[in-house]
Amino acid sequence: MRALERFPATRIVATPAALDAFAWPKGALVLRTAPDEALALTAEKISFAGDEHAIVERDDGFTGAWVPAKEALAFLERACEWEPPAVRPTFAQGAVAGLPAKLFFEAERVLFLVPAPYAADLQERLT
């Protein structure tokens, strides 16, 4: 069984322009999950600026694991009907193994992230 962990994060819903312009803290992995929404994977508190009406909420509701790239791509070949992107690094999201997954592709590894309620299923299906 692959060990999964919760990824501390902050979710920000704001205007696309504000999200585009914001200087994210160093070390935060920022996944742009929608034009008006970002998921910043960091334990650091984010003081978002640029949209006075932005919703900025701490969110510890994502669970996942970094998987070596070769293993990840082999898994995706079995479990993902859409074509994983070729460029690195890049973010993609969609159904993987029947789960709502967010993926971050680096050259040597891939982050698999799902909402924590699906953690048990991800763990079972990644194995």
């Binding site: 979710r11 704001a14 932005a54 909420e57 969110d59 509701g61 909402p115």
Partner: peptide, 12 residues
């Protein structure tokens, strides 16, 4: 409408 929406069902 000028609104921001955040679903927190699975986070909370």
């Amino acid at each position: 409408l000028d609104v921001r929406l955040l679903n927190q069902t699975q986070s909370l």
